[in-house]
Design a binder for these strands. Structure first.
Length: 923
RNA sequence: GCUCGAAUGGUGGAAUGGUAGACACGAAGGACUUAAAAUCCUUUGGCUAUUGCAGCUGUGCGGGUUCGAGUCCCGCUUCGAGCACCA
């Protein structure tokens, strides 16, 4: 039998399916292991060769762990809600459900061809009502919870109400939108609406008036992680700031826990760093500056408390509530004009426009330490959303304050010895403090670090301010003015939102006639008929964002068909958390933050048993495209080969990489490719047309998309799997280049030929030779080590070496080849299954046991030392294994080869590294 | 601007502080073949030798630690990623 992937791959895929080989259930006799891929959004373009990279890596690990005796949970599903299907629906009128289902089917057939070991019985789709029931359920739970900052966990809102009834807001420690102050009596006097508004201030899922990223083109709001540099991540449309009444999740309440949790999990340092940046913790102080002549405390946040004596003015964000309160009559018009001038500017325009602008309010504040009067200004360089929306300006030591001071000719007082502030600000946080002596506090002569601490202590004691930690992480805006998403389980009665009973879930997405907003500007759900409770109360018309459905899907896989709980206690107690999670870095500040938040919330509720959902995470690199170019001589239809193009005036044109091999163009197929090239002529070099190349994003427009189906068709799934892993470390981004694939293809054939010659099985029961045992046990050791360290490319190299060795020694021993088959099974499951059965096994190779390395076999008989003089290797010396170190030293010195190096020299010392090197230091 | 990574042949990439370039691609030469494909063998970092065994040099740049540095430390350069009027 010849190796024929077209025959064996469909055969074993069918066998695995028929025998439910990859179905897994709770089995308390085995340790569990949970391997998860980030589930895909099924786009219309199908999979390209880059998508399966992470899936192959996780599949190898799953199969390996199974052979190691673990009960492995390895599921797959689809993140089915998303904008592209909806955009397509708007254009064509086709229901997004239909598009989504078609795309899912396409994905599934592509995935099936690669031979993954998913337990498809656990498949989930986020758009299935039985799935999103639990997304809605979690939302209700969040609505009914608040964050107790004393207990540092989520608690029921019912407890909060009980507390308000007894003692009002006194002494409450809770995450909130703004600090409220009321007595029990006041609370009990409030009507339903007022109470609802107060509670909204604390709920983890709340309705709030927030500045949102509004994208007019998409007709929806977007979360911070869905916007980059003022444009939407999807589509690249401009995004503007708008105040809207929206559902939000109080993610910020979990900021510190999200930060702390990073320390205990096995993620790459760069990914953790990205999350730390995103959470953006900064430790500082909140201070009060009195407004001169008014009973107003201006609250600011600073990380540089030591610089208070250098504050020469203050700045408010244009949106700050203080602006209106303190502006004097004389300045009123100037301030109003300024506010109007920036109001029509979008966030993006504000960012691009780095010109200094601002206006004086007419008011003065009193510096609490120096007691000096300082002017208060308004400027858009201060952000409303961070800190308190007001700053104390220290132009000597902050570049933005410096620019502002220079522009409006405000004083600059240097505070650090030797700092030259004539040209620019001095921002280093070190040096000796000067010019900082007040009536009660003197910082002069201190180091910056000590001065910060001393100032913080002082202001706390005097009640001028308090130490405060600020986070950049904002609450997640949870409403989308879209159709294709989870409906909120919310209805409104007289303007007050109420949650649907959990028993009535899921609240299914209704049908609409069109997927556009209504004429009155309501979201598409405004078109749904009878979108209200039986009593006639209207349902929420927004839907949930993309990250809603992906925030807890890993929990649902544990118990996907449970209709009574997101996941049963039993299933969650057994599977616990994801041991290995593989996916792209692009989710670092989106999904991976929301998921961790969601999980921590469910943990607080006692619904899940682990605080962190993903124990180890690997980011697979992006596969880029490798585009090819042909060079057309201007105004002709003649194409010149790469090496000769300099002699002509040429235009590079993208050419389909599928008609190019090793950068050599198939000219006949090129002519047939497109009508305009039918009569193309070529100027060749060495009889070939050589193309240029470039690394670009893999996309249709670059003609560099390589489809995994084509590779499977031509080379087989096993070759595709091996080659994707052989390309380089999984975490590294790299361009796809099909050229090297022949190498792994040859390897599989060589492996096959160890078992078959002239179509006949040549495996014998003969005793394996010592060399064969050594070769295979070295392989066992190497491959085991490499898989554990996700270094798949080097383990494939080891396979190649071993197969070459066994071929050279004509090894036909069953014992050796059986081990080889099990070792290759995670990488190339089809060929392994075929060979395993050929060796006479009835059961699947998935039930085999991973072989153990026997060190006895790989012990070297002889050990070769590199003998060097002063670190320069000069000759090799072979001694028998186990030779005493002292003896090795003597042999090296007395060797003939040493003679000329030692001539007339003194030996200073001799260093022997066991099994490796002898270095003789001479003088 | 701040933070984190990375830099090794023509290419993808190997190297617990111990003979740098494993493995693979590509290229060159050869064998088999009427021919091609497939397969197999040899060479392949650079330079000098190749009628001589060999020698020198070499992991972005400059220093340092060490008997010994691609690997550790300090200072740069370039590229990539994240954050960014965040006070």
């Amino acid at each position: 039998m010849q190796y024929n992937h077209k025959e064996i791959e469909p055969k074993w895929q069918q066998y695995w399916k028929d025998n439910n080989v990859y179905k897994c259930d709770i089995n308390k006799d085995k340790p569990k292991y949970y391997v998860l891929d980030m589930f895909p959004y099924p786009s219309g373009a199908g999979l390209h060769v880059g998508h399966p990279l992470g899936y192959i890596a996780s599949d190898i690990y799953s199969r390996y762990k199974r052979l190691k005796g673990f009960n492995v949970l390895h599921p797959m599903g689809y993140d089915a809600y998303g904008l592209p299907a909806e955009q397509y629906a708007i254009q064509t009128g086709q229901h997004p459900e239909i598009t989504t289902r078609q795309n899912i089917d396409r994905y599934r057939s592509q995935l099936d061809k690669i031979g993954f070991s998913y337990d498809w019985s656990r498949q989930i789709r986020t758009c299935d009502p039985e799935y999103y029931k639990w997304t809605q359920w979690a939302f209700i739970k969040m609505f009914n919870s608040y964050y107790d900052t004393a207990a540092d966990k989520a608690m029921p809102v019912a407890d909060l109400i009980a507390r308000f009834e007894k003692e009002g807001s006194k002494g409450l420690k809770a995450a909130c939108t703004k600090e409220l102050d009321f007595t029990a009596g006041e609370w009990n006097e409030m009507d339903e609406k007022q109470k609802s508004d107060v509670l909204m201030n604390y709920r983890l899922a709340y309705l709030g008036n927030t500045m949102v990223n509004w994208c007019p083109k998409l007709g929806t709001v977007l979360a911070n992680d869905e916007v980059s540099e003022g444009v939407s991540l999807r589509g690249g449309y401009p995004v503007e700031q708008k105040l809207m009444y929206q559902w939000c999740l109080r993610v910020s309440a979990y900021a510190q826990r999200l930060l702390d949790g990073l320390n205990g999990i096995d993620w790459t340092e760069s990914l953790k760093e990205t999350q730390r940046n995103w959470i953006g913790r900064s430790e500082g102080a909140e201070m009060h500056f009195k407004i001169d002549g008014k009973d107003i405390d201006l609250e600011i946040f600073t990380t540089r408390a030591d610089t208070v004596f250098g504050v020469t003015f203050m700045v408010l964000a244009p949106e700050s509530k203080y602006v209106d309160m303190i502006t004097t009559e004389e300045q009123r018009k100037a301030v109003d004009d300024y506010l109007a001038s920036i109001k029509h500017k979008t966030e993006r325009e504000r960012m691009i426009d780095k010109k200094v602008s601002g206006v004086f309010t007419g008011a003065y504040a009193i510096n609490p330490l120096s007691k000096k009067k300082i002017p208060v200004w308004v400027s858009d360089y201060v952000l409303a959303g961070y800190g308190t929306g007001a700053i104390m300006a220290v132009p000597a030591h902050d570049s933005r304050d410096y620019a502002f001071a220079r522009h409006f000719d405000l004083p600059v007082i240097p505070l650090i010895e030797g700092a030259d502030v004539s040209e620019e600000s001095f921002e280093a946080k070190e040096g000796i403090i000067i010019n900082s002596e007040g009536e009660e506090l003197n910082l002069n002569g201190m180091q910056v670090k000590d001065a910060i601490a001393a100032t913080k202590k002082f202001i706390e004691e005097k009640g001028i301010g308090k130490v405060k930690v600020n986070y950049r992480l904002r609450d997640a805006i949870f409403s989308r003015q879209r159709y294709w998403g989870e409906p909120f389980p919310v209805y409104y009665k007289e303007g007050i939102p109420y949650m649907l009973d959990v028993e009535k879930l899921p609240l299914e997405l209704p049908e609409v006639d069109k997927y556009l907003p209504t004429e009155s500007g309501e979201p598409p759900l405004g078109r749904a008929k009878n979108w209200c409770t039986p009593e006639g109360w209207e349902f929420e018309k927004c839907t949930m964002p993309g990250f809603a459905g992906s925030s807890a899907y890993y929990l649902r896989y544990m118990d996907p068909r449970n209709n009574d709980a997101l996941v049963s206690r039993e299933a969650n107690g057994y599977w616990r958390d994801v041991d290995l999670y593989i996916g792209g870095t692009e989710h670092a500040t989106g999904h991976l933050i929301y998921s961790r938040f969601w999980n921590k919330f469910l943990y607080d509720l006692g619904e899940v048993c682990t605080d962190e959902p993903f124990r180890k995470l690997i980011n697979q690199g992006m596969i880029q495209g490798r585009s090819n170019f042909v060079y057309r001589i201007k105004d002709t239809n003649t194409f010149v080969s790469y090496g000769l193009k300099k002699q002509y005036d040429v235009t590079p044109i993208h050419v389909d990489v599928n008609i190019v091999s090793n950068d050599v163009l198939d000219t006949e197929r090129f002519k047939a490719w497109r009508p305009e090239f039918n009569d193309a002529e070529f100027i060749l070099e060495d009889g070939k047309y050589v193309c240029g190349y470039a690394v670009e994003k893999m996309s249709k427009s670059m003609f560099n998309v390589v489809n995994p189906d084509d590779i499977v068709e031509n080379y087989g799934a096993d070759t595709l799997r091996l080659y994707e892993m052989f390309l380089g470390p999984i975490e590294q981004s790299k361009p796809w280049d099909t050229n090297g694939i022949d190498g792994v293809s040859r390897f599989i054939k060589k492996l096959w030929n160890l078992f078959y010659r002239d179509g006949k099985l040549i495996v014998t029961d003969s005793e394996p030779t010592k060399e064969a045992l050594k070769s295979i046990h070295k392989l066992i050791k190497k491959v085991t080590y490499d898989i554990e360290n996700f270094s798949y490319n080097t383990s494939i190299s080891a396979f190649m070496i071993c197969v070459n060795e066994l071929t050279a020694m004509k090894c036909t021993s069953r014992a050796v080849l059986e081990n080889l088959t099990v070792l290759i099974a995670p990488f190339a499951p089809h060929v392994a299954e075929e060979l395993w059965h050929a060796l006479g096994h009835d059961k699947t190779v998935c039930d085999a046991v991973w072989p153990e390395c026997n060190e006895e076999y790989i012990k070297e008989d002889n050990v070769t030392y590199a003998v060097s003089f002063n670190g320069k290797a000069r000759f090799n010396m072979t001694v028998s294994a186990g030779t005493d170190v002292k003896e090795v030293e003597n042999l090296a010195i007395s060797s003939e080869n040493s003679a000329k190096w030692l001539e007339g020299k003194n030996i200073v010392k001799v260093i022997v590294v066991p099994g490796k090197i002898v270095n003789i230091v001479i003088k």
